[in-house]
């Protein structure tokens, strides 16, 4: 079974994330890493591979530094990587990104399963997987917390507030997984060494045959027009419990008319 996993390189949430003058996410001036939520997708792919046979290819769309996301995935155990990288991609929105991912996936060969994470931790839209399914004409089994593949059928559990649904589709299909699905592995020393020899292809727009006018800041269908740092909250009143902390809390609530 051939599995393609979409992985994104994102600014570290623990660092000082910010925007650039052109209102795009700053991806150069900050520390980046493989989006934590995509580690669950990589792990899900590796589990499937280990229970049968097949190959795991990871695909990323992003600047040069995004090669790190591919590298980490290879260290975890993926077999090969594809990095779509081109200056003209800078500023692509979700729809433009999904176009590039779709073209890269088509170019990378035959596949049975396309896997993605729940959301990118920077954009947090949770829309690229559905866009990809639409573009590739695939059934979508998205935001699942369990995953089984058997006899050409993929099955997963999708939870909502009112119900826990089982969703099924036949392969090839697009699947996105939540952070409830597994516990992503850490790269082992062996994995780190092995990753150095694994093949990574870097493709430009020309390699994909995508017109530069369809991506980037100019080709995107949405545009961020301004950003502002939220002012820090004013420092509140902090009391130390000396046997009356609960009473003070209740008094505060009463003063604020919550009670």
């Amino acid at each position: 079974m051939n599995i393609v996993v979409c992985v994104k390189y994102v600014p570290d949430a623990q660092g000082d994330r910010t925007f650039k003058d052109d209102n795009t996410t700053d991806r150069e001036g900050v520390d980046g890493l493989l989006s934590e939520l995509d580690e669950y997708a990589v792990e899900a792919a590796l589990k499937l591979k280990e229970s049968g046979e097949g190959e795991v290819t990871v695909v990323t769309v992003g600047p040069e530094a995004a090669a790190d996301a591919v590298k980490k995935s290879l260290q975890m155990g993926a077999d090969k990587g594809v990095h779509v990288c081109d200056d003209a991609i800078h500023g692509s929105d979700a729809a433009a990104t999904s176009l590039l991912l779709a073209e890269a996936i088509k170019k990378s060969g035959e596949y049975d399963l396309v896997l993605a994470g729940l959301a990118s931790t920077d954009g947090t839209m949770s829309v690229v997987p559905a866009m990809l399914a639409e573009r590739l004409g695939l059934p979508q089994v998205t935001q699942v917390s369990t995953l089984e593949v058997e006899g050409g059928t993929v099955k997963g559990r999708r939870d909502s507030d009112v119900a826990s649904d089982t969703i099924e589709a036949s392969l090839p299909a697009l699947v996105s997984v939540t952070d409830q699905i597994n516990e992503p592995r850490y790269p082992s020393f062996k994995g780190i060494m092995a990753a150095k020899k694994k093949p990574v292809e870097t493709w430009s727009l020309a390699d994909l045959g995508v017109d530069a006018e369809r991506v980037g800041l100019a080709g995107s269908w949405t545009k961020v027009t301004s950003f502002a740092k939220r002012p820090p909250r004013e420092k509140g009143e902090i009391v130390t419990d000396e046997g009356d902390g609960g009473t003070k809390l209740a008094e505060y609530l009463a003063a604020q008319k919550f009670v």
């Binding site: 009391v239 419990d241 902390g245 609960g246 809390l249």
Partner: peptide
Amino acid sequence: FGVVGDLFEVLPQA
């Protein structure tokens, strides 16, 4: 508003 304390004491009292 914050209470530095053990929730098992503070919450029941509150």
